[in-house]
Nucleic acid binder design. Sequence first.
DNA 1: TTCATTTCTTCACTTAAGTGAACGAGTTAT
DNA 2: ATAACTCGTTCACTTAAGTGAAGAAATGAA
Lengths: 193, 193
Amino acid sequence: MQDILFDFISKYVSLTDDEKHALLSLQLFHSVKKGTVLLKAGQKSQESYFVLKGCIRVYYMIDGEEKTTAFYTELDALTPHRVPENAPSDYFISCVEDSMLLISTSDMEMEINSKFPKFEIMCRMLSEELLAKQQIDFDEFKTSSPEQRYLNLLQKRPDLIQRVPQHQLASYLGIKPQSLSRLRARILEKSKA
Amino acid sequence: MQDILFDFISKYVSLTDDEKHALLSLQLFHSVKKGTVLLKAGQKSQESYFVLKGCIRVYYMIDGEEKTTAFYTELDALTPHRVPENAPSDYFISCVEDSMLLISTSDMEMEINSKFPKFEIMCRMLSEELLAKQQIDFDEFKTSSPEQRYLNLLQKRPDLIQRVPQHQLASYLGIKPQSLSRLRARILEKSKA
DNA sequence: TTCATTTCTTCACTTAAGTGAACGAGTTAT
DNA sequence: ATAACTCGTTCACTTAAGTGAAGAAATGAA
């Protein structure tokens, strides 16, 4: 499990054994049961998450309905946005499957960043990468219909469709579960014909 | 016009007169006529834009139709995403109104960053701010209907509705111009009743 | 195991967006 | 000044998503 982390980090910076030990001594690793709510709307989020194994999701509660906006799976990093600083969260984060996560508080990040400037460099690289990816995702979402979004997901993250409940997928695509069922039936119909 | 820039920068870092002169010597200021295409799909984008006055937009050309995904107005910064590095752009950037822009190439950014580390700090702050804002915008877009998005825009960027052609606004909201007309008529109808 | 709950699908109906066409108003070019 | 074009709106019709209800299948708990 630690190897997964170090392999990932090695794509950005190379760590000495000292640095690796410092990281491990922070006890970042957490095993989290399916259904666990990691962050509730109204709470002030101080934690960042990195998925080693499993799946977590972000959702809003609007008019009593869950609206899922993101899924994070293996090697995805989730740093809750805080604008303005220290505002309470307006969304939830919960665990879709039994998962192995890295959970870091901002205190821990500050500590490790001050000891090893490398980490800050890596965080900057990661955040630039995330910004670019997110821009692309946003543009794709805006420029396509629910059906295209579903077909697109089928290409890019086929695992999600298997491991995530349909009603969560539906709201991620911007539609209701009934519409997703219909949409899938429609696609099947087309591929038959 | 220069004051606008320095006022903006002062929110992040404070500049000495030397640094201000160095910035001005780069000749970043450009006056751009309405309709000018700053970046075409297929080109490799090396430039970043900062709007001092006016409005520029990002759009895709899909099946012969323009799909607008973003508008940038006064004090907005647009750094085209480049993932993978140096890939040709798949979108267009054009000028909605006669505008005054700051245009910087990556060469110029490297030069000024190496001379004055402050700029790099400011860029990092800006990019973190952008990432957070973008996450919020994305979530808002995903969790609302075209009508809600229009009402939301009316609250947050009422100027856009005045200064931008309706068909561009429509595609920004994820719908066709005809639907935007209808939607507006519907809202008017409701507010009368 | 059994009971309850959640999840997914289907159905009939409503509502809103897509489509193609037409029209008038405003803009641009010649 | 006139012609060509763009832009916004409206209309009739089509298509797809929303809604509420019902039922089957899978999941979880007592």
